[in-house]
Design a protein around this nucleic acid. Structure first.
Length: 652
RNA sequence: GCCGGAGUAGCUCAGGGGCAGAGCAACGCUCUCGUAAAGCGUAGGUCGUCGGUUCAAAUCCGAUCUCCGGCUCCA
């Protein structure tokens, strides 16, 4: 091929020849006018480029519009610049840090100096952004030398950009300009500001420069923008919907839990309905574990500090534990984890290789001193209960045991129809963060990966996320407003067996070290329940619902028959109540619907005469009249098989 | 811990130096009803807490507690 031609491959596999140095815009134009009009940037192989940048090589090309992730990324990146331009207009002294696009929008970190910046100021900036966007300023790219770049920001006393530029290579530094605003930036950007039609500045936060608590805290402005007002309206509506499933709101409405300032922050009190929910979950896992060879144990909530010094937890996590208390001449601590207690139980008897694996399980409550700003409903608390277990096995058994545990965890999430992300958490090069020998780590990381591969898990490997004693598999889920939380975890540990001098007698009659697997499918009952509430939006599967059936007599004349139906259900073990208030049936139905009770049984003259019940399902409405016996077996079947609620099945 | 918001009846919220408000819930009475709200009435408050300014503070100021959104952290 002659040198001045390149070949571009499109997402559908088609290829086309172009002159070298053709721009992305021209390529788009060659396909259709509409595409050229909507084009935002292009992605060449994995690089996102400006629309007017000359394309110098062959490769796979994608024209990015608003409908692609890369297109939105470009759109929001330019919006961040627009935000900065608006701030600069209103606050000429403001100094800019970084302003990247994020998953939903963008932010910019800004040093306002002595100026105070609050909610009220946000609106003015928002208005200014729209005003500036309408001026249709072009985003102009310019190559600058390192000296020139440094000089530019030194003149403006912007130590943040200087800090950034110092780390850049000569020859790779570019500035982007739009209107009166110039920014250090690698791009790419929109052709001009005019496509930014709707802007909402959503949050104001403090953010440390470079994420370092010891450096200055800048003001971070979060925002989101769209090419159409309608899209912004939809986004805001969606946010509002999401807030309706917030477990803090539903937890209160459904009587799941409460917080009380006299009890203390981060210390949830489980209300009767929440307790039913939690105990049902515990029973579910306890039964499953029984079938899988676990033995349950119970350990106290405090222990001598020596226990945690032996485990090595104490020096690593000193700051996130409640202060020790003095008892006689010793120091005791609220337990921040269950593992050391279980290790002592393991050591309580001489173990033979014939006994392994030993699987010790406990719903163990632990207490951790989380920073006050971190506490969040049931998701992040200072006292919580882990569905903890420790498996002591031989090296040969390790991989199979990991697979068993993964299988259990998958089974749990499948039962609730929950989508989870799986992460293999490895160590990084910061040796101070981890205990134990490097070669153990290598081995554990390898075993985990092999097990995950053999189970066909779809995972991501993340370095630096391991615990201090070993690598792990984490199960991550998102809450109603998109935040990620870790639920289940499976961790391999070669360190604790050494520290606690754990042994078993092998077939060779010698002592050997077992390996430990730490695991918690739910993670913590508190966090799991918070996610469960949001996942089902309070519309729980029948087997989990705190109140499963409400019997609604048409009038007081049918209270006795309603009671009769309820008694039959109670005898079956169903959680049932009768609404015998002197309300009209419509009112009773409404109250039961808003309380999200799965089944309503309406009984009046017709039902009394025929020994039937009229069934209403939450969210689905009237589903017809059945004999009481039919309903009993229907409920029984639905509970036994842990059906998901109808509303949820439709969504899947 | 840090930055920004918020806290008024059981719940959702209005009021913003001059008598503490509404809807829902609760309680009482009437109604006895067929698939998402019956009617009337009654009661309910140290306006998170402590202090200051003022003739007068729910309202202005300061401190503090708790909650929410971020940052940092997260066994």
């Amino acid at each position: 091929m002659p040198e001045d031609f390149i070949t571009l491959t499109f997402p559908d596999g088609a290829t086309k020849k172009y002159h070298k140095n053709i721009t992305g815009f021209e390529v788009a134009e060659s396909i259709s006018k509409g595409l050229a009009r909507n084009a935002i940037s292009i992605t060449l192989d994995s690089d996102i480029l400006d629309l007017d940048a000359p394309i110098t090589r062959s490769g796979e090309i994608q024209i990015n519009t608003w409908d692609s992730e890369d297109g939105q990324y470009t759109f929001w990146h330019s919006s961040a610049h627009l935000l900065a331009e608006a701030v600069q207009e209103l606050y000429p002294e403001a100094k800019f840090g970084i302003g990247p696009p994020i998953e939903n929008g963008f932010y910019y970190d800004i040093d306002f100096g002595e100026e105070s910046f609050g909610q009220e100021q946000l609106e003015a900036v928002e208005k200014k952004m729209i005003e500036l966007a309408r001026q249709k300023s072009n985003f102009k790219k310019r190559n600058v030398s390192k000296d020139e770049a440094l000089k530019f920001y030194e003149e403006r006393n912007n130590e943040y950009k200087v800090d950034l530029i110092k780390e850049l290579e000569e020859g790779t530094i570019t500035f982007y300009e739009q209107g009166n605003f110039t920014d250090l930036c690698r791009g790419p950007h929109l052709p001009d500001t005019s496509s930014i039609k709707a802007v909402k500045l959503t949050k104001l936060a403090g953010a440390y420069w470079r994420g370092d608590v010891n450096r200055k805290q800048l003001t971070r402005i979060y925002g989101i923008s769209f090419p159409k007002q309608k899209l912004l309206d939809e986004y805001l509506k969606q946010l509002e919907e999401a807030r309706k499933r917030d477990h803090k709101k539903l937890g209160k409405e459904l009587g799941i839990y409460m917080m009380d300032s006299m009890v203390g922050p981060g210390l949830p009190l489980w209300l009767p309905n929440g307790t039913v929910l939690r105990r049902t979950l515990e029973h579910f896992l306890r039964e499953e574990q029984k079938h899988r060879g676990y033995q349950e144990v119970i350990t106290p909530h405090i222990a001598n500090i020596e226990l945690y010094k032996t485990s090595g937890h104490y020096p690593y996590y000193k700051d996130s534990q409640f202060n020790p208390m003095e008892v006689d001449d010793d120091h005791y601590m609220l337990k921040p984890m269950n593992c050391p207690h279980h290790h002592r139980i393991y050591s309580n008897e001489l173990r033979s290789y014939r006994d392994l694996p030993v699987r010790l399980a406990e719903f163990g409550s632990v207490y951790r001193y989380e920073q006050s700003g971190e506490l969040n409903g049931l998701s992040r608390v200072r006292g919580f209960t882990q569905d903890d277990a420790h498996i002591y096995c031989t090296h040969d058994q390790l991989k199979d045991e990991i697979k068993n545990v993964i299988d259990l965890t998958q089974f749990v999430f499948k039962t609730f129809g929950m989508p989870v992300d799986i992460r293999l958490s490895y160590r990084d090069d910061n040796d101070e963060k981890y205990g134990g020998d490097y070669e153990y780590w290598e081995r554990a990381q390898k075993e985990i990966k092999e097990a995950a591969d053999e189970m066909n898990l779809n995972y991501k490997i993340v370095d630096g996320e391991a615990s201090f004693y070993g690598p792990k598999i984490d199960f991550i889920i998102r809450d109603a407003i998109g935040r990620k939380w870790q639920l289940g975890t499976v961790q391999v540990d070669y360190v604790m067996p050494e520290r606690f001098d754990l042994t078993y007698i092998g077939s060779d009659n010698n002592k050997h070290r077992p390996v430990i697997i730490h695991r918690a499918p739910f993670g913590s009952m508190e966090r799991f329940v918070s996610i469960l509430i949001e996942h089902f939006a309070g519309d729980f599967p029948l087997w989990l619902a705190p109140l499963q059936v409400k019997v609604l007599p048409i009038s007081e004349d049918y209270n006795a028959y309603a009671k009769h139906c309820a008694d039959k259900l109670t005898a079956l073990g169903t959680r049932v109540e009768v609404d015998s208030r002197s309300e009209m049936i419509g009112g009773k139905i409404r109250d039961a619907e808003t309380a999200k009770i799965p089944y309503m049984l309406i009984v009046g003259e017709r039902e009394l005469e025929n020994g039937t019940v009229s069934i209403r399902r939450h969210k689905s409405g009237d589903i017809g009249t059945f004999s009481l016996e039919e309903f009993l077996s229907k409920v029984d079947e639905e509970i036994k098989n842990k059906h998901l609620p109808p509303s949820h099945l439709e969504e899947e």
